[in-house]
Design a protein around this nucleic acid. Structure first.
Length: 811
DNA sequence: CGTGACCGGGG
DNA sequence: GTGTACGGTCACG
C-alpha cells in the first residue's frame, strides 16, 4: 500500500470500532478529498498528588459506572513536570474516551490525597495536534488501509501518520455562497416564516444562481427549480458535488447557514452536508457559529470584524469597497419582496446582485486565506477557530501548545468566584500627554515598535519569573511602580522566551520578505500575536493570569514614553501629544534632520529589542479640547499628510445618526483649516451653510435624522422623536416593528422636538426647522474646532460677505 | 446622570 | 463546546 500524502484541512472527534478516534479530513496531492481515521491516541489528563501520597495505584484501579457506561483508567505514568517553572511530580492518567475524563475527574476531585487535577479541559483534538506536532493546512503522510465508515469520501484507517514538512496547501478549493430571502420592508429577519428565494455560488470558473420563480432571462448562470425545498436540496447537492476545501460567505455563521438549517427543518430535508454525514452544526448564543464537519468554514464577516478596524462599519458593501476596491451591485434590496411577489423579469437584476455577493465573498476569502493559514501554522489552531476566537484565546492556545515543549503543566481556568475577584482588579494603564488644543505646523510622529512585547522580553516579565526566590527584591523593578514585585534576572521566563522568538522571527521575516505576500502575512500575524500577550496577562479568564505582570508592563511603558518626551523637550522640540507608545512632535525651529538624529539618539539608549520608529511627517495637525474641559481630548485629532491626505481620528460622533448636512460641514471645515492653516475660509463656509439652512437652500434629504426603533411602539412610555414618527407611520398603514430604521426631519413650528419630528415625505421642501439644525446639530459638531481660533458661538452664526467663498472651493 | 439591555451583520 | 466578545448607544428610572 503506497503512502497517502494529503493536506490536512479539518479534524473531528468520533468513536469508531469502540475506540476514541480522530478523523483527519484532507486533500491528497492528486486532488481527492479523503478521511483518515487515527485510533492511536488516548485521551489523558494529569493528577498532582499531595507530598508522599501514593495515588497511582488507586487511580489504576478506578472504575465508575454512570448511566450504564463504565468509565475507567487505562494506564498511568509518573512524570516530572514543571508548574510555573518549579519541578513537580505529576501522574499522567489515560482514559479510553474523551467523555470519561469528566466522569473520572469528578470522582478524583473528592480525594484528600491529591493536590490538583490539570489539563482535564484541554480539547482532545488540540492535544492530538500538539503532541503529534501536526499542523492544520500542512502536508502529512499516512500509512493507512481502506476502511468503510459510510462517509462521503474515501476513508482509511491509519497505521501511522507523519509530518515532515512545512509545506502547506497552495490553492484550496474555495466555494462562496450567498442567499437572498423574502423579507417585507423594514421587518426583522424571520427565518421561520419567510422563505429563501435564491442562492448563489461562486468559485474559480464556477457561477450559479438557483431560484424558484421562473422569468425570462439570458443569464446563463441562472437555473430554475420548482420550490424552496428544491432550492435547498440544490444547495446541499451543489456543495456535495463541488467538494470544497473551504466554504465561505458573509455573515454565514449567523445568517445563511442558520437560515438554510431552519428552512431545511421545515421541509424535513436531510441536511447531511458534513463529509462524515453529520449536518450543519450550529452553536447558538453570543459566539454563534456554523460548523460543517470536514470542510473549513470561513465567515468573512467574523474574521474581518475582529482583524481589521473598519471606518464606516462592516456592511459587505463597505468592507468590499475598502478592501477590494469594488462594492456590491447597487440595487434596492428592500424592494426584493415586492418584485418577488410580482414574479416577472424584474427578478433578474437581483440574481446578478446575489451572484456578486458570492463573488465578493470569494475574493475576500482568497485575500485573507494566506494570513489565516499563517496564523494556523504559528498557533496550531484550526482555520475555523483562528477566524472566530478572540485574541486572548488565540494567545492562550499558543501558550498551551508551547507549554508542551517546555514540559510545563497548563494551569486550570479560574472558577467563577476567582473570575469575579479578578474582574474587579484594576490597574493603571498607559501614559497620555494631553494635547494643548490648537493647530500645529510640521509634525513628526514616532512610535515604539511593539512596545509591550519588547518590554516583556527586555525585562523578563513572565508568570513564572515573578517574585523568584533566587533574586532579591531590588532587581529589575519598574521605576514608578511600588516595589512589591520583582522579576528574575537569572533565568529567562516562559513568556519572555516565547515572545523573544516571535519578535526576532518577525524581524527576520520582515527583512527577507519585503516583496513576498506570504511572508508579509506571516510578519503581520506574528505582530498580532505578540501584541496580544499583554492583554492576555490582565484578562480575568486567563489560565496564566498575572495582573502584576500586566501592571509592571504598563509601568515600564509609561517610563519609556516619558523618557522620550523629556528628551525631546530638553532638545528644544515641542511635544504636542503622546499616547501609550506614540509621540507627536512639532518641529518648531528644528529641521527634519534634527528629528531623525533625535530618533537615532533615543534608540542608542534603548536596550535589547526595544525600538522607537519613525511613523511619518505631517504638514499640519488639529487637536481639539475635550467636552467641558480646556485640556485636549484624547485620541481626537486630524492630520494632513504631505501628500495632502486627511487623517481624521476620533471625531466619531459625526458619522451615522447625524444628518448629512452636519457630516459634510464638519469634514469640509477640518479639511479647510488643515490646508490653509487658518479658519477664515472655514468660517465663511460655515456661515454659508448656516445661511443656506436659514434660507432653506439645503436639500431636505440632507436634514434627515435616522434612528433605529428598539422595541414595539406600544411599550414606549416617553415618546422620543423617532417613536412619535413610528406611530405616525403605523397610522398610515405602514407595518412597524422593532429593528426598523426610522427616518425623520424636525419641522419648523412651535412645541417640543418630538412633536415636530415628522416623516420626510410629509415635509415640504425647506420645511425643516432651521434653528434646530443650526443650534443643535451643526454648531455642536464644529464648535470645538473654532474654539481653537477663539471664535465664540455668536461669531459663528453671524453672516458676512461671501465673496471669499469662491476661493474656498478652489482648495 | 447612572445603570442595564441590546446591538453589530445578514434581507 | 464554553465561559467571559467589546465597545458603543439607547432606554428608563
Amino acid at each position: 500500500m503506497p503512502k497517502l500524502q494529503f493536506y490536512l484541512l479539518d479534524l473531528r472527534r468520533a468513536e469508531i470500532n469502540n475506540r476514541q478516534a480522530v478523523l483527519l479530513f484532507g486533500r491528497t496531492l492528486d486532488n481527492n478529498r479523503i478521511c483518515i481515521i487515527d485510533l492511536s491516541f488516548l485521551p489523558y489528563f494529569y493528577v498532582v498528588p499531595k507530598k508522599g501520597m501514593n495515588v497511582q495505584e488507586k487511580l489504576e484501579k478506578l472504575e465508575v459506572e454512570r448511566e450504564n457506561i463504565i468509565s475507567k483508567v487505562v494506564k498511568t505514568e509518573l512524570l516530572k513536570k514543571k508548574f510555573y517553572g518549579r519541578e513537580i511530580d505529576a501522574i499522567k492518567v489515560y482514559v479510553p474516551f474523551q467523555r470519561d475524563i469528566n466522569i473520572i475527574k469528578s470522582i478524583i476531585d473528592e480525594w484528600e490525597i491529591i493536590e490538583g487535577i490539570y489539563e482535564s479541559d484541554i480539547s482532545y483534538l488540540r492535544r492530538y495536534l500538539t503532541e503529534k506536532g501536526i499542523i492544520i493546512s500542512t502536508l502529512l503522510e499516512a500509512d493507512a488501509d481502506p476502511f468503510n465508515a459510510g462517509f462521503k469520501l474515501d476513508t482509511f484507517l491509519a497505521k501511522s501518520i507523519t509530518t515532515n514538512t512545512e509545506d502547506s496547501i497552495k490553492s484550496p478549493k474555495i466555494l462562496a455562497f450567498d442567499i437572498e430571502t423574502y423579507n417585507p420592508e423594514g421587518r426583522k429577519i424571520d427565518m421561520k416564516n419567510n422563505p429563501i428565494i435564491m442562492i448563489s455560488f461562486y468559485s474559480e470558473g464556477f457561477k450559479k444562481v438557483f431560484t424558484w420563480k421562473r422569468f425570462k432571462t439570458d443569464l446563463e448562470y441562472v437555473e430554475f427549480v420548482n420550490s424552496e425545498a428544491d432550492l435547498i436540496g440544490k444547495f446541499f447537492q451543489t456543495v456535495g458535488n463541488f467538494q470544497p476545501d473551504v466554504i465561505t460567505g458573509y455573515n454565514t455563521d449567523i445568517f445563511d447557514f442558520p437560515y438554510i438549517e431552519e428552512r431545511a427543518k421545515k421541509y424535513k430535508l436531510n441536511a447531511k452536508i458534513g463529509l462524515d454525514n453529520a449536518g450543519i452544526r450550529l452553536v447558538k448564543g453570543d459566539n454563534a457559529r456554523a460548523r460543517i464537519p470536514g470542510i473549513v468554514h470561513i465567515d468573512n464577516y467574523r474574521f474581518i470584524r475582529k482583524a481589521i478596524a473598519m471606518e464606516g462599519g462592516y456592511s459587505l458593501d463597505n468592507v468590499a469597497t475598502k478592501l477590494l476596491g469594488r462594492g456590491k451591485k447597487k440595487i434596492n434590496i428592500e424592494d426584493l419582496y415586492k418584485i418577488w411577489d410580482q414574479g416577472n423579469e424584474m427578478i433578474e437584476p437581483y440574481c446578478e446582485y446575489n451572484l456578486v455577493d458570492s463573488e465578493i465573498a470569494y475574493e475576500l476569502c482568497r485575500k485573507f486565506l494566506p494570513e489565516i493559514i499563517e496564523l494556523t501554522k504559528i498557533t496550531g489552531l484550526s482555520m475555523d477557530n483562528i477566524t472566530r476566537l478572540g485574541y486572548s484565546q488565540i494567545a492562550e492556545s499558543f501558550l498551551i501548545r508551547q507549554a508542551n515543549s517546555f514540559n510545563e503543566l497548563v494551569p486550570n481556568k479560574p472558577d467563577k468566584t476567582e473570575m469575579a475577584r479578578r474582574f474587579l482588579e484594576s490597574y493603571k494603564g498607559s501614559f497620555v500627554f494631553e494635547p494643548k488644543p490648537g493647530i500645529y505646523d510640521d509634525i513628526v510622529i514616532f512610535d515604539f515598535r511593539s512596545l509591550y512585547p519588547t518590554i516583556i522580553v527586555s525585562h523578563n516579565i513572565s508568570p513564572d519569573t515573578i517574585d523568584c526566590s533566587c533574586c532579591d527584591n531590588d532587581s529589575n523593578i519598574a521605576p514608578d511602580y511600588p516595589k512589591e514585585h520583582h522579576f528574575c534576572s537569572k533565568k529567562k521566563g516562559f513568556l519572555s522566551v516565547i515572545l523573544e522568538d516571535l519578535i526576532t522571527r518577525r524581524t527576520r521575516i520582515k527583512e527577507i520578505g519585503k516583496d513576498n505576500l506570504i511572508l508579509k502575512a506571516r510578519a503581520e500575524t506574528l505582530k498580532l500575536l505578540a501584541n496580544s500577550f499583554y492583554g492576555y496577562l490582565g484578562f480575568y479568564g486567563a489560565r496564566w493570569y498575572s495582573i502584576e505582570s500586566a501592571r509592571v508592563i504598563t509601568a515600564w511603558g509609561r517610563y519609556y514614553i516619558k523618557q522620550v518626551i523629556e528628551k525631546a523637550q530638553k532638545e528644544g522640540f515641542i511635544v504636542i501629544y503622546s499616547d501609550t507608545d506614540s509621540i507627536f512632535i512639532a518641529l518648531a525651529k528644528k529641521s527634519e534632520k534634527d528629528t531623525l538624529d533625535f530618533l537615532i539618539n533615543v534608540n542608542e539608549s534603548l536596550h535589547g529589542l526595544m525600538e522607537l520608529e519613525f511613523e511619518g511627517f505631517y504638514r499640519r495637525g488639529l487637536f481639539v479640547s475635550a467636552k467641558e474641559k480646556s485640556t485636549g481630548a484624547k485620541k481626537k485629532y486630524a492630520l494632513l499628510t504631505r501628500e495632502g491626505n486627511l487623517k481624521i481620528r476620533g471625531f466619531e460622533s459625526v458619522r451615522t445618526n447625524w444628518p448629512e448636512v452636519v457630516r459634510k460641514v464638519q469634514r469640509t471645515i477640518i479639511e479647510g483649516i488643515l490646508k490653509t492653516g487658518d479658519a477664515e475660509d472655514a468660517l465663511l463656509y460655515l456661515r454659508n451653510t448656516i445661511e443656506q439652512l436659514r434660507n432653506k437652500e439645503i436639500d431636505n434629504k440632507d436634514t434627515i435624522i435616522e434612528t433605529t426603533l428598539q422595541k414595539n411602539i406600544e411599550s414606549y412610555d416617553n415618546a422620543a422623536p423617532h417613536v412619535v414618527v413610528a406611530r405616525a407611520m403605523k397610522d398610515k398603514g405602514i407595518d412597524i416593528s422593532p429593528g426598523m430604521k426610522i427616518e425623520y426631519i424636525v419641522a419648523e413650528g412651535e412645541g417640543r422636538i418630538n412633536e415636530r419630528a415628522k416623516l420626510p415625505e410629509d415635509i415640504k421642501d425647506g420645511g425643516y426647522d432651521s434653528d434646530y439644525y443650526i443650534n443643535n446639530q451643526v454648531i455642536p459638531a464644529i464648535e470645538k474646532i473654532f474654539e481653537l481660533f477663539d471664535y465664540k458661538k455668536e461669531d459663528l452664526i453671524e453672516t458676512k460677505d461671501q465673496k471669499k467663498l469662491d476661493d474656498f472651493w478652489r482648495l
